[in-house]
């Protein structure tokens, strides 16, 4: 494997290319934006400290996503919370639609990450399996269950149309 980037190069590349991705993943897996920001910082510190070598940008991106998900899980465990969102579908007065992000966040961890990685980042089930360390079929079932749950709650759901 040829080493493409490592250390500070990897850091500046990640900073330019993937900060938003890391932040989005973090926001999907933490209770509020300030927690998400903490996690993003921790992720970048980890990147600097690890001095890991990456074969290409995608490799780096996948690593960042995985580390972000893990750090968020640790954080959630520490705070002893079970769910991110109390009740996503309780309509707030004056609001017509439930917030779609909140709805996705209300799903179990693997479901919401799969939904994000597939629908937003465009990863295939196989690739998601590699990132989240699961079998392709498992990912496919997460995806369909996640979609099912959203369809029940949201008007129109997440069909592939």
């Amino acid at each position: 494997m040829t080493v493409f980037i490592r250390g500070k190069d990897a850091f500046s590349y990640a900073f330019k290319q993937f900060t938003d991705t890391v932040y989005r993943v973090a926001l999907h897996n933490t209770v509020n934006s300030s927690d998400a920001e903490d996690v993003v910082q921790e992720v970048f510190i980890k990147l600097l400290e690890s001095n890991k070598a990456f074969s290409d940008g995608e490799h780096l991106k996948a690593w960042l996503i995985r580390v972000t998900v893990n750090l968020c899980r640790d954080k959630l465990r520490k705070s002893n919370r079970e769910t991110l969102v109390e009740n996503a579908f309780a309509f707030k007065t004056g609001e017509e639609k439930p917030d779609v992000i909140e709805a996705v966040k209300s799903l179990p961890e693997n479901y919401r990450n799969t939904i994000y990685l597939h629908y937003y980042e465009g990863y295939t089930a196989k690739e998601i399996g590699k990132i989240l360390d699961a079998k392709e079929n498992t990912v496919l079932s997460w995806l369909s269950r996640g979609r099912e749950a959203l369809r029940k709650e949201l008007d129109g759901g997440f069909d592939d149309e």
Binding site: T19, Y23, V100, I101, Y119, D160
Partner: peptide, 20 residues
């Protein structure tokens, strides 16, 4: 509400300046 709403909602999420 569908996939597109979700994508456009995620699009709006960007890392805040202080964080950067």
């Amino acid at each position: 509400m569908n996939k597109k709403d979700y994508i456009s909602a995620v699009d709006k999420i960007t890392a805040p300046k202080e964080l950067l």
